[in-house]
Design a protein around this nucleic acid. Structure first.
Length: 797
DNA sequence: GTAGGGTTAG
């Protein structure tokens, strides 16, 4: 007897403790866990309403898996347990399991609250029709709807109702239903009006007017009334009206301020949002995790790292430690802030300290690695991740693509589909960029077709990726076709198309498109100017390029960076205007760095300007002694001038410093497969046949006047030997392989990691004439179209 | 045990 009494006392005590911890909001999870641990340790087996309460707490702290574990231990779960479970599945987004629980519950044990939970589950998972249908069923089965039912049904209606007529019918139906108009129901009604107001089919002002009328007439407003009205105006783009509502709030209602802050952030008024927070703090308005996350993420997105960091410091100063520790979203926002501002170590530190993490936390770190180009870290982190979603995959795929790992990007895209994720347009954009990097035109085309099939063809990001893909695969016409048919364009689209024209040597067309962009009031950005300067440089349009450079500051308030100066210098020295280039360098507000000297050196090589060339190379040796390109350019310059002794000196310098020239590597796509050739390749299975065919071609080419140019051979050897070295160049092997394998007459498109060699450039001119086919080579810098003995670059590269 | 508003990743 005594024993049972004791158990009852203990149970009551636990129940009271759990009740208490539910009023403690964010710390409830940790306290509940402690209480639960205590139960287990003392041998107390929770049952009945204590178990239900525990389950509920675990569900609300996003630990649904554990809640389910508890549920499964109950032999005969009562209606309260079942209701909790439905709510849990609903928040987990698993409507199917919620339906199973609902269907498996006999009618005799159901109650109104149980129906409410299922109606809400449908509504939360965007199935308004099912929610309404269940409401009808509930009334047929003679269950009495209450205020909760009414509010949930109104929420469901907001998903279905589209125009004002529909909305007013709904309002009348609510009036007739005999509902008691308590605040919560009126809030839901206002919310429905507000949601319908942003539908394109409805009149926004009419419905917002109706919402405002209800709002004004409400005898008793609670915090939700204020926030609903504020967000309503925010969503309908009336920030002033929203602000007016907030100014009418006299009580200490932090959530209303949060709604206003988030409204400012959404409309890009970051400084107004920050100012709101300042005022909120001064007035002693309660701020919480929502306030912090809004502010922090706004700072992260606007690049206001200092403000974000101040916010972090503020939180650490003012909040109880456990409040911050257990706030998942604040920590996620912080991780994302540090990650986006390039402080991946700090981001990782916060992540490591987080007691609970979700997919958002993992994805934030993954994007931080990817954005910084830390692909090795990103890859191992990706492997470690306990779960992945669509975003995880797209971040990783586009990260691989943008960092030049095209093949791995495509592999991952396929893997993603195998694992059952249907790619969204961003994922397609990543895969398309991967094909662009590889020059895998067939892959790119197939992706384009799938994109259309899955209905993503009007996507901006995918369209922009397609422009770049076709251009980088050598078909500027197809790029233009995508550009012209895209339903809407942004500055990225224009930049991509201008760059496409520039890379293919169509400088005048690039300029034309740039002018059209200006006419259509698209504001050019830093990237636009980089592309237009390159386009001018590739086509030798010195005057035009110089004029555009000068307009940057004056017309568009863009301060030219070192990269812009480098392209201007490149433009000038390619045209042999060395004294003008010197003037520009003199006028620069900073000391010339590596990009400037590189531009000078390559100009000097073209024009044989030895003194300045040597000076530039020496500066580059100081700035980046390990960079192989400088040695190659310098030795080519000596070779062209016939200074073989100096070529030998450069070679010795390279040897002494342990610098190896990056091996040349070229590739070509044949029947959707990418074939790679290295210099002096022995690996490709058909390379012997390639060498044989090349030999035959060279005989024909010589008849037309081709003379091998051994100046460009870096090694010291006999002349005849040097010639044979020329025939091992990777670009020659890839082109010849294409001639052997592709259908007769088809254009050969080859890609090379480095700049095309001078002899190969000359050889392809003759080759194009011998075989009567077009040969397109994309090298590290630009495109060369060889047709009938000429190259589109006009020997100007 | 159930509603209505405010947050976090490309």
């Amino acid at each position: 007897m005594k024993n049972t009494l004791d158990i009852r006392t203990v149970a009551n005590r636990y129940a009271a403790q759990l009740q208490l911890c539910c009023s403690h909001r964010s710390s409830s999870y940790c306290i509940a866990r402690t209480i639960h641990a205590h139960m287990i340790a003392s041998g107390f087996k929770p049952r009945g309403h204590i178990l239900n309460r525990l389950m509920d707490i675990y569900c609300k702290s996003s630990n649904i898996a554990y809640a389910l574990h508890l549920f499964n231990k109950i032999p005969e779960p009562d209606i309260v347990a079942r209701t909790t479970l439905i709510a849990a599945y609903s928040t987990a987004g698993n409507l199917k399991l919620a339906q199973e629980v609902f269907g498996g519950t006999p009618l005799s044990t159901r109650d109104t609250v149980f129906y409410n939970a299922m109606i809400t589950a449908y509504s939360h998972n965007n199935d308004g029709h099912a929610a309404i249908e269940l409401f009808r069923e509930m009334r047929r089965d003679d269950f009495r709807p209450d205020n909760y039912t009414c509010t949930s049904v109104l929420g469901a209606l907001a998903l279905i109702v589209e125009d004002e007529k529909h909305c007013q019918q709904m309002h009348c139906a609510v009036l007739k239903s005999g509902t008691v108009f308590v605040t919560s129901v009126l809030n839901a009604l206002i919310s429905t009006y507000v949601k319908c107001a942003s539908s394109p089919l409805a009149s926004s002002s009419l419905l917002m007017g109706a919402a405002k009328k209800l709002f004004d007439e409400m005898p008793k407003k609670d915090e939700l009334t204020w926030t609903t009205m504020i967000t309503g105006y925010v969503r309908n783009n009336d920030l002033d009206a929203a602000r007016e509502i907030l100014d009418g709030v006299t009580e200490n209602i932090g959530v209303a301020w949060n709604a206003m802050i988030s409204g400012y952030v959404h409309h890009g008024f970051i400084h107004e949002a920050l100012e709101m927070f300042r005022r909120m703090h001064l007035k002693g308005i309660q701020h919480d995790g929502f306030t912090y996350t809004s502010i922090i993420s706004a700072c992260a997105n606007a690049g206001l790292f200092k403000h974000g960091k101040q916010m972090h410091a503020f939180i650490l100063r003012t909040e109880e430690k456990h409040e911050l520790e257990f706030s998942l979203s604040v920590n996620n926002a912080l991780v994302s802030l540090y990650g986006k501002c390039g402080k991946v170590d700090e981001a990782r530190e916060i992540f490591n300290k987080m007691p609970i993490r979700d997919l958002i936390s993992w994805n934030a770190i993954l994007s931080a690695y990817v954005n910084l180009g830390c692909i090795v870290e990103a890859k191992s982190f990706f492997k470690e991740m306990p779960e992945r979603n669509l975003l995880t995959w797209t971040v990783m795929i586009s990260g691989l693509a943008q960092n030049g790992f095209g093949e791995e990007g495509l592999k991952l895209f396929n893997q993603m589909r195998i694992e059952g994720f249907e790619p969204c347009d961003y994922a397609f954009a990543g895969a398309i960029t991967s094909s662009a990097m590889l020059g895998a035109l067939e892959h790119g085309r197939q992706l384009h077709a799938q994109l259309v099939k899955l209905g993503h063809d009007s996507s901006l990001s995918a369209g922009n990726a397609l422009i770049t893909m076709y251009a980088r695969c050598g078909i500027v016409e197809a790029a233009n076709c995508v550009f012209l048919t895209m339903p809407c364009l942004d500055s990225v689209s224009w930049n991509a198309m201008i760059a496409a024209l520039g890379q293919h040597g169509h400088g005048l067309q690039a300029i034309e498109l740039f002018e059209q962009m200006l006419k259509e009031d698209i504001v050019p950005d830093r990237i636009t100017f980089l592309t237009i300067l390159s386009a001018c440089s590739h086509a030798g349009l010195v005057k035009e390029g110089h004029r555009y450079f000068n307009s940057m500051r004056g017309c568009y308030n863009i301060t030219p960076g070192e990269d812009h100066y480098a392209r201007l210098i490149d433009l000038l020295v390619r045209a042999g205007k060395f004294s003008e280039a010197k003037d520009v360098i003199q006028s620069m507000p900073f000391e010339p760095g590596a990009p400037i000297w590189e531009a000078l050196l390559s100009g000097c090589r073209i024009h044989g300007n030895m003194d300045l060339g040597i000076q530039s190379a020496e500066r580059l040796f100081e700035l980046m002694p390990q960079h192989d390109g400088t040695y190659v350019l310098l030795s080519n310059m000596y070779a062209t001038a016939g200074r073989q002794n100096d070529v030998a000196k450069v070679r010795k310098l390279m040897r002494d410093r342990g610098i190896k020239k990056e091996p040349g590597c070229s590739w070509i796509e044949v029947e959707s497969k990418v074939h790679v050739f290295l210099v002096d390749d022995t690996v490709h299975p058909e390379v012997q046949a390639v060498y044989n065919y090349l030999e035959q071609l060279v005989l024909e080419m010589r008849k037309l006047g081709y003379v091998p140019d051994t100046k460009f051979v870096l090694h010291d050897m006999e002349e005849a030997q040097k010639e044979s070295v020329l025939y091992t160049h990777s670009e020659k092997l890839a082109v010849v392989f294409g001639l052997m394998k592709l259908p007769l007459g088809a254009t050969i498109r080859v890609f090379k990691n480095l700049r095309i060699c001078g002899d190969c450039h000359n050889a392809f001119k003759f080759m194009s004439k011998v075989v009567g086919r077009e040969i397109v080579v994309r090298d590290g810098k630009r495109f060369h179209h060889f047709r009938n003995g000429e190259c589109s670059c006009g020997n100007y590269w």
